[in-house]
Amino acid sequence: MVFKIILGIGLTLVIIAGIALPMVSNPSSFFELPVVPGLEDKARIIFFHVPTAWVCVIAFITSLIYGIQYLRTKEILYDIKSVTAAGLGFLFCILATVTGAIWSKFTWGAFWNWDPRQTSIFVLLLIYGAYFALRSSIEVEEKRASLSAVYSIIAGLTVPFFIFIIPRIVSSLHPDPIINPQGKIHMNPTMLVIFLSSLTGFTAVYYWMFNLRVRFSKLLYQQQMKEQE
């Protein structure tokens, strides 16, 4: 319970700080953010959009790990965990796409312009969309579990390429706060604190959602087993 209260208060503070702290050209106190040239207030999306993409990667990697676990042990619990993680990853992937598209409307002028970032996240959505299509097309439980475990491993391996590599090989308009030093967002300590707390908070929310969903699926599965007996 303590963990949940801390999470609730923490993310509320992150939201308030991320949106309401003033942006000034030369921040002198800890409660001021630097102006990002060319983006101004639109730079505030970094506190919310990047964590969604981050959680999306974590979730897909979790799905991959549980996929491997399932293939090794053939325990249905790992299949439940793998599909739950993939589902949440898909949700956060959609959130990242939508928040990105709204931001791009006001920065680049159109909701969608096939920037390498947008293209790669779109392909990622297609890959995981196919994962759910694959699952829903197989009736036999064990076959479904092992096939989707294999698919989630292959799909999980492509995630780093689509999120981290391809958008950096092809020239993109997408700002890269950490890796690219030139003409991109430079984070001052205040920004960094808010950003990292936001990452932590989003990850905690993801873990909470994952936990709830797994517990519920487990109950559902137990109930199904009882009915079959």
């Binding site: 999470l7 609730g8 949106i19 309401a20 929310v205 709830l212």
Partner: peptide
């Protein structure tokens, strides 16, 4: 506008948080 965005975001977050708590 910035504060309106802030209020809406906080309301959304409280909604999600409350929903997760009740689900739990």
């Amino acid at each position: 506008s910035l504060y309106i965005v802030l209020i809406i975001t906080v309301i959304c977050w409280f909604g999600i948080f409350g929903y997760l708590l009740s689900l739990d």
